[in-house]
């Protein structure tokens, strides 16, 4: 099947949208899907991003068939969440929504793939309910250090030295923090 958008390349990503009981399909090649995703067009059209990614997961399965009729397509209900009973079928019919917090573990393979594409990494570095400093976590700290270093390089490149100085101070503070967490090093990146 050819891509609905460029009509040249083979469509490998199949998006489904259920509205008022009617199923609409969109078939895209990987390039067009990525472009649409970047433009946020899929979201604007009501095509759920999580659903897009779920379909990629489906395609990766060995027994996945190229089937343009979603109604006939039976998804494998194999994985079922022990906590809430959510399965692949429900995951698909709800556009990638989950049944309970435990589902994140149950469907970790599919979700991991989704997060890699729609989010910035797979590591939460924000607020925590126990109010501990999020950056006390060494893994989160390293991510923040990498990002700050990139930002600093960019500021220097643009010759915005005042902002760069602030950024530099922040980077030093982050490195100090990481050193205090891991006294024996791994902070090889700085000097």
């Amino acid at each position: 099947m050819l891509c609905d958008r460029c009509k040249k390349k083979e469509a490998t990503i199949h998006v489904k949208k259920v509205s008022n009981g009617k199923v609409e399909s969109l078939h895209l090649c990987a390039d067009c899907a990525r472009e649409k995703e970047e433009q946020g067009v899929l979201g604007a059209l009501g095509f759920n991003l999580a659903e897009v990614l779920f379909n990629i997961g489906e395609m990766a399965k060995p027994h996945a068939e190229e089937d343009s009729s979603p109604d006939e397509k039976k998804s494998d209900p194999g994985i079922t969440c022990p906590a809430c009973g959510w399965n692949m079928e429900k995951l698909q019919s709800s556009h990638g929504r989950l049944g309970c917090p435990e589902c994140y573990r149950t469907f970790s393979a599919i979700i991991g793939e989704a997060l890699n594409r729609i989010q910035r990494g797979e590591m939460h570095i924000g607020k925590r309910p126990d109010k501990t400093d999020p950056l006390l976590n060494a893994a989160a700290l390293r991510i923040e250090i990498t990002r700050t270093r990139k930002k600093l390089a960019e500021l220097v490149r643009r010759e915005e030295y005042e902002k760069a100085a602030v950024c530099r101070d922040k980077l030093n503070a982050l490195n100090d923090k990481l050193k205090s967490l891991e006294p024996r090093g791994e902070v090889s990146d700085e000097k």
Binding site: A50, L98, Y104, L115, Q119, E122, M123, H124, G126
Partner: peptide
Amino acid sequence: DYAFDDQLGYLTCCPTNVGTGM
């Protein structure tokens, strides 16, 4: 008692909101 995961942050119904949930 919020549903929170050390790695993924605040757990939400849709993975498009997970993390900060913000």
